[in-house]
Amino acid sequence: MNETATVNNHQDEIENTSTGLSNKKLMMWLFLASDVMFFGAFISTYLIYRGKSLNGPYPSEILDIPITTVSTFVLLMSSLAMVLALHYLKENQKNKATLWILGVVILGAIFMGFQVYEFTHFAHLGLTPRTNIFGTTFFILTGLHGGHVTIGIIWMIFLAYGSHKGTLRSDNAIDLEIAGLYWHFVDIVWIIIFTVIYLISANDTPPPGAELLIH
């Protein structure tokens, strides 16, 4: 790596702003801090209503841990692809950067494919957002996460195009970096969802007397 590239690596850190920090990056961190509250609201809503569905299907009958484990792995690897894309862009290696951004797009699309499959499968098994309180909280939380992933994929497609065309370069790598922050945030939200909804709740059975109450 030559000296110019090394300097470019840190351009975003020596911004000529009132704070000395990149305004774009600061804005993204503020957004992510607020998004914590957004997802926190839906995760806590899920937890409040956990195990209180009066009719099935219940999580123990429907959640498929092996499939979700694979989709979790795919999303984690997309984060790896994202950070590698940023590294190569800062290194002025345009082709490698473009390829890794496309890697993020593909892995994100695979993750969404898993989610579409899961939603469709659950609907066939009789679980929709209207079926019970588990269905409502589950679909809203995972659906909103899926929405975030979809926005991230669209953003990455634009960035991949920019990198390919040469408009996204090492001197404006901050644009990819803030997209990367968003993408990694979506990943850490899924880390929590996977643990709380899938692993912890997967064996949730109906509350005592639930079926009697409904009749």
Partner: peptide, 9 residues
């Protein structure tokens, strides 16, 4: 936003 003005090491 303004570009980096100083190329500090």
């Amino acid at each position: 936003l303004p570009k980096n003005m100083s190329l500090k090491p």
